[in-house]
């Protein structure tokens, strides 16, 4: 599965870039993230609960940030293993300046799914993947807006 999207985020590119890489923000925005801890340089371990409606599964994930080029570009790689199967997703994020001190975030992603989820869920997988990924960025936008307000 693959896809792309974009989102307008409040704040300057540099601030947005730093915020997106914060573990606190990652934890807030990743679906069902109960725990996130740093295990290395740009590497995190997390427990995620991912799914749609009642159809959810727990995954142990490692999140790796690569090709980090402040403040324009980075790659995020997520490997999740759980009972329902595994997920390998890669997202490439590019930031650019917008007017009004806003930033344009553009993302492309590829995702591969294996196990039970792939063999039973193929009907909705593509759409649900799109949803989960855009959910992350929607939550990120919300969080950044919240921070703007409280600043």
């Amino acid at each position: 599965m693959n896809g792309n999207g974009k989102m307008e985020l409040p704040g300057l590119k540099e601030d947005v870039f730093n915020s997106l890489l914060e573990p606190e923000l990652l934890q807030k925005c990743m679906m069902g993230c109960k725990k996130l801890e740093k295990i290395g340089e740009n590497k995190y371990a997390a427990d995620l609960s991912v799914g749609i409606a009642a159809v959810k599964g727990k995954y142990e994930a490692t999140i790796q940030l690569e090709d980090v080029e402040f403040p324009n570009h980075y790659k995020i790689i997520v490997h999740g293993e759980g009972k329902p199967g595994f997920v390998n997703a890669e997202g490439v994020i590019d930031l650019s300046d917008l007017e009004n001190e806003e930033t344009l975030l553009e993302y492309t992603y590829t995702a591969e799914v294996g196990g039970k989820v792939a063999s039973i869920g193929q009907r909705m997988l593509g759409g649900v993947a799109k949803l989960i990924i855009s959910d992350f960025f929607k939550k990120a936008k919300k969080e950044l807006q919240r921070r703007e307000k409280t600043d």
Partner: peptide
């Protein structure tokens, strides 16, 4: 099967 060897028609739905 997808190119990674995942069985996509894994139930009688598919």
């Amino acid at each position: 099967y997808d190119k990674n060897g995942q069985l996509l028609s894994g139930s009688f739905m598919d």
